[in-house]
Amino acid sequence: MATKAYDKSFREEVYDKVDAGEEIKLCMQCGVCGITCPLRDEMTYGPRQIWSLIRAGKRDEVMNCSDIMLCTSCYTCKVRCPRGVKVIDVMHGLAHYALQEGIVPRENTSKFGKFFWNSIYKTGRIDETEVPMRYSMRRGPIHGIFETLEMMDIGRALLSHKRMHFKLGPGIPPSKKIKGIKGLKKMLDKAEAMSPGKEA
């Protein structure tokens, strides 16, 4: 029977362009990461099988798999992996890379994460009122009003218990910036330019 060689191009792409991508070279396919994951029942493949698919050159299966954005960053797999693979970092790297390639693994988390990063980049910190407000408006103002009303009880409870700053709406008033925001932006730009897959 004729055998077909694996397509190696995708694994090379992962090693070169995905943050922590080379970590999967260490994997011995024991499966501890998969069975140990708190969201294993919600995943189609889990980390071990994803590594295997990468090695087998299954680009579409991996890049379109929403598992890569279902990592809670609990570090259970990372502390249990007998080969010391930085499982979380690879999952995060794959999710970032998929977004960069125009694929949205999980719509809500992708959107929230974008506003989250924007808050860091523009102000230096996370504004816990601003980010959810912007997120609630992601599908337009009408949807935003309904979603805000739905979350009203939680917002009100946080406000009245001194655990949230009041805002009329996104940017009203604007989020406070750290003093060194200009320097921080320069640092982040520099770090981006030095990252795998982003070098000029």
Binding site: G93, F112, K114, W117, R125, I126, G180, L188, K190, E192
Partner: peptide
């Protein structure tokens, strides 16, 4: 003084690993 966000735990969506380390 003037500390910034550490990036946890959704940094990877908008930022790269190196950017999070920089934070």
């Amino acid at each position: 003084e003037d500390w910034n966000c550490c990036g946890a735990s959704l940094h990877y969506i908008g930022g790269t690993e190196l950017q999070t380390k920089a934070l």
